[in-house]
């Protein structure tokens, strides 16, 4: 059974200028253990789709199944971890207490919280930074804290909305490598929003190319790249072939309403 199943999903925002169709008739299926990237031009609704899966937006029509139930049920069950575009750390909490925030809300014991924080901060290479406050960290480190926070309550599903969008190229590539290793180790289902082609190809088992607003799925590309990927692979023919197909999809999607 798929972790996420969307069929004919449409979402309309009510704005002062009238209704705005953000998603139109989206079909999407994500299997357990998939790493799925949503890629598309700005404003194509990829973030909206992710937010709908997270029950942060309400679809206007269509069906959406998350973890075998409704999106709302999945949220109430804390069935997913969400990583936002910005780290969204609470500045009055130190790194450790930011990571343990969801655990406090879920009522875990103090010992268990500390143990989890140590484990997941170590996983994102931030051991030793427990007592620092967010403003004392770089942007990349802050985003890693927010990933540790999303992992800390051990959801099987990870929703990531352009988590590295605000970072420089080098940091971004470094964190891509780390994320891939993390995914190998945990085998969580990941849905990853990006507008970087190389990031999408490098990370994903499946790439969903979305077209311009109103957002719809233009193409779904299965990646046949091996599981243990390295940054050098980006120059191989297999990598470039997939990247090319993504680019073609994006260009076709772009010209959609031109």
């Amino acid at each position: 059974m798929p972790v996420i199943h969307a069929e004919g999903l449409s979402l309309e925002f009510q704005t002062p200028d009238g209704p705005l169709l953000a998603l139109s008739d989206v079909d999407l299926s994500v299997e357990s253990g998939d790493f799925v990237s949503l890629i598309g031009p700005s404003g194509c609704g990829k973030t909206t789709l992710l937010r709908a899966i997270a029950d942060l937006e309400q679809p206007t029509s269509g069906t959406l199944v998350v973890n075998g139930g409704s999106a709302r049920q999945a949220r109430l069950n804390r069935g997913y971890g969400y990583v936002f575009q910005a780290p969204a750390l609470y500045p009055w909490r130190n790194v450790e207490r930011n990571v343990t925030l969801p655990l406090e809300i879920m009522g875990l014991s103090k010992a268990e919280r500390r143990e989890r924080a140590a484990r997941y901060l170590d996983m994102v290479n931030l051991a030793g930074f427990e007592r620092k406050f967010p403003w004392q960290l770089s942007g990349g480190m802050q985003q890693r804290v927010s990933i540790a926070r999303a992992l800390s309550f051990e959801p099987d599903l990870l929703l990531m909305d352009e988590p590295f969008g605000a970072l420089d190229e080098i940091t971004r590539e470094h964190l891509n490598g780390e994320l891939l290793r993390l995914w190998h180790r945990t085998r969580k289902t990941v849905i990853f929003v990006t507008h970087s082609i190389s990031e999408a190809v490098f990370l994903s088992t499946r790439i969903v190319v979305m077209s311009r607003r109103p957002g719809r799925v233009h193409d779904v590309i299965e990646s046949d790249l091996p599981d243990d990927r390295t940054l050098d692979m980006r120059d191989t023919e297999a990598f470039l072939k997939i990247a090319h197909r993504v680019r073609e999809g994006l260009e076709a999607g772009h010209s959609y309403d031109d």
Binding site: R78, G81, Y82, A88, Y90
Partner: peptide, 16 residues
């Protein structure tokens, strides 16, 4: 809004 959304993803109640 992001800080509020974060609490929503934890299905925090009003008191939390």
């Amino acid at each position: 809004p992001l800080q509020l959304d974060l609490m929503r993803t934890y299905s925090a109640d009003k008191w939390q």
